[in-house]
Design a protein around this nucleic acid. Structure first.
Length: 445
RNA sequence: GGGCCCUUCGUCUAUCGGUUAGGACGCCUGGUUUUCAACCAGGAAAGAGGGGUUCGACUCCCCUAGGGCCUGCCA
């Protein structure tokens, strides 16, 4: 049996870190098993879904490097869902209800307040044909609920182990809204059957859904796939993911200069027994992926940790891999420049700071003007190479007697305006004699 | 209110009754770089609290505290 998974975002917004983690889990397992991933656009809610968001989802997945093998839109399959609904109705498993949302809401609140479970009482099941006719005559439209069996549904979860959901304690799920729109549940199951999905991998917020969905799979005569529910993300403080973080989009991460592999590495490793370390390829992440490694406690999403992982990725990026992006940042100063500065970057756009040092103008930091002036006198003339820095600093040392930090720090500060940065030997030839002289003399250059 | 899940170094975690409680990131120290950063090495650092069960508990059970999820005509 070939392995097939699916990623099913709803195009009602950009995909955020939580979505990416779900996508990633599916891709990694599929990759590892030699399976395929279906991109399913869950756009049953016509009013909230947009083509722009749909496009952004595809763009974001491409940016991340997660290519799908097949794709579909639920909005193109309403006739199929219609048939499935008919089948359930014929089996007496899908029944019309006429309560309004307000009524249901009120009942739920009363039930909660009196300590009773807020479960739908199935009043609509007792309606006679005549009752229904008069309700319809009043202009009421039915919404349709799936009749749960009341039995326990069991499965062995890929990450949580044996699970058992008591459907007797659940409300019969509404499958079709009053306005005729299909809710998430039925189309999802129908598609999982039609597209021969073998594994459903998603966040643990769907655990209860799985109990319900297993019944619908069975009612429709489909094969029940394997389920895996991983714990959700929480913020760095262990509390619920803040709104800002939870909605942190792929687009924003890309705009801030994060590397796709950093985002993927971080999201793949947090909450697992593997160390949170940078990986350079998705294949590598897939090789290391295993459901058994996923913990049962929520995974912490810490932007600071993501940044560290990002730095580790950037430090390993070759010039060819970043040339175009450097150019876009106005910081393509050649391979020597890139190799000199990359180890000092956390985020690629940080490179601009160092490009500035090479290009100028920067304001030199000079604590001892006479020392700097003396150094300026000793600047070699002509083109600089890898050996120039040592020749220069040796000359300054000889002349001034300064050595170690007292020698190097003032020179670094004068030449770069900063007290930290890449190896000066590599930077020096890129700065060149003219700028070096001006900066040592205290001029912005 | 009910259901499900979780709680080990600062962080993410390993341990499936007997371990010097291991690793990774961070931190500290050292090395390298005649400077800083980067890099490399070493080090410090942990079982929420309380009861049981047991010869023996991080591990099994119960309670308390704390956290996450579900309980929608959202997905």
């Amino acid at each position: 049996m070939s392995i097939r998974l699916r990623f099913a975002p709803s195009p009602t917004g950009r995909i955020h870190v939580g979505n990416v983690r779900t996508a990633l889990m599916n891709w990694l397992f599929a990759l590892r098993q030699g399976g395929q991933v279906l991109l399913r656009i869950d756009d049953t809610d016509i009013a909230r879904s947009t083509k722009e968001y749909e496009q952004s989802i595809e763009d974001d997945l491409k940016w991340l490097g997660l290519p799908w093998h097949d794709r579909t839109n639920q909005s193109a399959r309403f006739d199929v869902y219609e048939k499935a609904a008919d089948k359930l109705k014929a089996a007496g498993l899908l029944y019309p209800c006429y309560e309004t949302e307000d009524e249901l809401d009120r009942r739920r609140k009363i039930a909660q307040a009196t300590g009773k479970p807020p479960v739908y009482d199935r009043a609509a099941l007792k309606l006679t044909d005549a009752d229904r006719a008069s309700l319809e005559a009043e202009g009421r439209k039915a919404h349709w609920r799936f009749k749960l069996s009341g039995a326990r549904k069991d499965w062995v979860d890929l990450v949580r182990g044996p699970q058992s959901i008591d459907t007797a304690s659940l409300s019969d799920p509404v499958l079709i809204r009053e306005d005729g729109a299909f809710l998430y549940t039925l189309p999802s199951v129908v598609d999982d059957i039609d597209f021969k999905i073998t594994h459903i991998v998603r966040g643990e917020d769907h655990v209860t859904n799985s109990g319900v969905q297993i019944e619908i799979f069975e009612a429709l005569g489909g094969d029940v796939p394997a389920f895996g529910h991983f714990p959700l993300l929480v913020g760095a403080d262990g509390g619920a993911l803040s709104k800002r973080l939870g909605s942190l989009g792929v687009g924003e991460l890309a705009a801030e200069g994060y590397e796709p592999m950093a985002v993927l590495s971080h999201l793949a490793k947090i909450g697992t027994s593997d160390p949170v370390e940078a990986r350079l390829t998705i294949d590598q992440l897939a090789e290391e992926f295993a459901f058994e490694k996923i913990g049962r406690a929520p995974a912490r999403f810490d932007p600071e940790e993501l940044k560290r992982v990002n730095a580790a990725v950037v430090h390993q990026l070759g010039y060819d891999a970043v040339k175009d992006r450097l150019a876009a940042l106005g910081a393509d100063k050649g391979e020597a420049f890139w190799m000199a500065v990359r180890a000092n970057l956390a985020l690629l756009p940080d490179v601009k700071e160092y490009a500035q040092i090479v290009d100028g103008p920067i304001t030199p930091v000079i604590a001892d003007a006479s020392f700097a002036a003396a150094a300026a006198e000793l600047l070699p003339s002509g083109a600089y190479d890898a050996a120039s820095w040592q020749a220069f600093t040796n000359a300054v040392k000889e002349k001034t007697g300064a050595k170690g930090k007292a020698l190097f720090m003032p020179l670094r500060q004068a030449l770069t305006g900063m007290d930290h940065g890449p190896e000066m030997a590599a930077l020096f030839p890129l700065i060149g004699e003219e700028r070096a002289r001006k900066r040592l003399m205290g001029e912005a250059a």
